[in-house]
Nucleic acid binder design. Structure first.
Lengths: 143, 143
DNA sequence: ATAGATGCAAATGTTTTGCAGGAAA
DNA sequence: TTTCCTGCAAAACATTTGCATCTAT
């Protein structure tokens, strides 16, 4: 079963928006929360079907969109052309291993500050950014 | 006609790789060089066809891939799901207006240095990165 | 003459949408 | 019983590939 907190947060969101609580939504939430994050739609779908064979791709996509709107998940995509979802938490960027796919999160206030300065310099009002570092992780360098 | 320098660079590349010089390749190069950069495949195709109606999408894509390999162009993609091409030049990142699509290039050695430090910290060997700032340009803020 | 290029149509891969039937409130 | 969901199949969309034909060398 999905952790209490998130389960309640979803229930609250559904109620506030006159949406319905369904087995499928509960199943997707549960599987999503059980992952370490950065899971692709495909992998999520595969895992959901292990427990609930009938669930379609469509429902996984729609439910993840819902979880994003409810503030429980966030969508990311790296250079491999697949959407990934992570459990929503404080702002950060990513370091991705181009060989094994390992993903590490990082946060750097110096970079955040520099971004603001750059936006200022060109008169832009910054809304968001995308910052990904690609390289070889320690294991993949060793081989 | 395409600028001498690039025309020759392409001819050299073609020769070295036993590839053929064709009207289509010359046409794509010419149109590409005449743009201010960050042109999409679609726009490039459209402009090429103004002068050379028979040229297909396939040839545009294949020729741009070739120009990238020859070091004359580089491929970029922002969050609008379309490939863009720019004339190859020194390393830089981009600031993109989410309303009008205006694209500004920037370079920040402080950020570059911070990236190296982050990669070091996690033991990654950095290969490349992707850094895009999205916001409203001065004009779009005014409206 | 021959390796390589072209353009069309079809395939790809991922995400979204239309719709008829099904379940929650 | 009404409103919302679901799953399937089909559509979207940008890019790539297969293939028969054409062309530069």
């Amino acid at each position: 079963m999905a952790p209490e907190f998130e389960q309640k947060a979803l229930a609250r969101y559904l109620e506030e928006h006159n949406l319905k609580q369904t087995k499928q939504r509960e199943a997707v939430l549960e599987v999503f929360l059980s992952t370490q994050g950065h899971i692709t739609s495909e992998e999520l779908h595969r895992r959901v079907r292990e427990q609930h064979p009938g669930v379609g791709y469509t429902t996984v996509y729609r439910t993840m969109k819902l979880l994003c709107e409810a503030g429980l998940a966030s969508e990311r995509s790296f250079d491999d052309g697949a959407l990934r979802y992570e459990i929503f938490h404080e702002h950060h960027d990513h370091l991705v291993c181009t060989r094994c796919g390992k993903i590490v999160e990082f946060e750097c206030s110096m970079i955040e500050g520099a971004q603001d300065q750059i936006a200022d310099r060109y008169g832009f009002r910054l809304l968001r950014h995308r910052h990904e570092l690609y390289g070889l992780c320690p294991n993949c360098q060793a081989e």
